[in-house]
Write a protein that binds this DNA or RNA. Structure first.
Lengths: 229, 229
DNA sequence: CGGGTTCTTGACCTCTCTCAAAATATGTGG
DNA sequence: CCACATATTTTGAGAGAGGTCAAGAACCCG
């Protein structure tokens, strides 16, 4: 697809005029990646940020004891590693591909230059970062207050809103990630996810088929996710 | 103090030239507040953001069950509520004064205009937001992995780095907040903070005198905070 | 059809939450 | 500056959610 079309799909560049986008396209680098490939690692020098076009990426950190904590699953059209713009210029996490795909690379240097010339870039970037901050704040709140059932319900509800198929009141979600990864993202252990999914199934709220989840009673799920929040 | 001098103290405006600062000063509103006063509440229309000059502010959210979750303690010279720039334009949390002081209010409208005219404002804002993102990411990681001892140690170490007095290997920290608030910030209960502080005291690592903490063995504290990270 | 990974389940155990009560600190008016 | 009222902190005891370890089952791929 045309590079400019791809750029336009991102929230980050949505408000830009065509000639702005052309400037942007001039510094953009297309990059494909395979499953399991790492786009950058924790501690690497941050030379730019990315816009995911297709495929699936997780941002994660490795704890000293070897366990991995998933901070975020990146969806197509989302940007990631914008925070590469800060002070020390190192990536604070690793970006690993869960499925093969393509990303657009925006080099820091060229982008900073664009920001200096064209305020629209900065304004959009600020909006994007602010949205992320809000998301993170919610995650912090969830981790402090909500139990695993509630967090899992919250995840499923959100996922079903953004990425699902629905027929006659029944919603089908494709988790798209291994349950172990989901556990890490929700700040718990895979065993607990297993047990919690089972509990929800026993209550007739959902059904699990591999990495596919069928939601039978969305309302109950919503209630569970709001109980604490 | 001169308004421009106050503005210059913030990381957010540190790199600006004097004439930029003068423009900024022109739209700045000084605002004093008393202890317990709320600068804005969750859900209020976000009309701008703040730079804390003196006093102490906490950002918090109230859960449906009435409990309060502290997201962040704002230190003098720091800005807060920059995220007011996003989409729906509502404050996502409440800002309540822990001690009387003064803040500078930067109205959204005027600031957006400045950003459009002068790229330096945007660049600094992006840096500032990125730093916050990094902080939040660390908090998420801590909440998922680390136990309370580790989180408390981490908090103390960080606090001692930014706000402490030190004589001959012994460091004195003023918590500056009630222990209950600290508990909320660390995602735990005040009883647990109490017990954990006591445990650290029994091990000879720290000493507690009201809201003052004396660190005797910084290395051990550091080790505790890194065990998980 | 192996061989490896991932998932599930069971058992156990520990950390931390909760509730209740005592102790301490803080603030207020006189 | 004291004495009382309120708020905060500490301590104790009990319960429960969820982590960990271990083993078997299911799944996935070449």
């Amino acid at each position: 697809m045309e590079l400019i079309e791809l750029l336009k799909k991102s929230l980050l560049f949505s408000g830009l005029k065509d000639n702005d986008l052309a400037e942007l396209a001039a510094i953009t680098v297309r990059r494909t990646f395979r499953k399991g490939e790492s786009l950058f690692s924790e501690g690497d020098e941050a030379t730019g940020f990315y816009l995911l076009v297709s495929g699936s990426i997780k941002l994660c950190r490795i704890a000293p004891d070897g366990r991995e904590k998933v901070l975020h699953f990146v969806q197509p059209r989302e940007t990631f590693a914008e925070a590469a713009f800060f002070g020390d210029g190192r990536y604070p996490a690793e970006a690993r591909a869960l499925a093969a795909g393509e990303a657009l690379y925006l080099p820091k240097e060229g982008f900073l230059e664009l920001m200096g010339r064209n305020p629209n870039f900065s304004l959009n970037l600020v909006v994007s970062l602010s949205l992320m901050l809000r998301q993170f704040a919610r995650q912090i709140e969830e981790l402090s207050f909500a139990d695993v059932t509630s967090r899992l319900a919250s995840f499923l509800v959100r996922r079903s809103a953004e990425k699902s198929a629905s027929y006659g009141g029944i919603t089908y979600i494709d988790l798209g990630v291994k349950k172990g990864e989901l556990a890490s993202r929700l700040g718990t252990a895979s065993e607990t996810i297993s047990r919690t999914l089972r509990k929800l199934k026993d209550e007739g709220i959902i059904e699990v088929q591999g990495s596919r989840v069928v939601i039978h009673q969305m309302e109950k799920l919503q209630k569970l996710s709001e109980r604490h929040e």
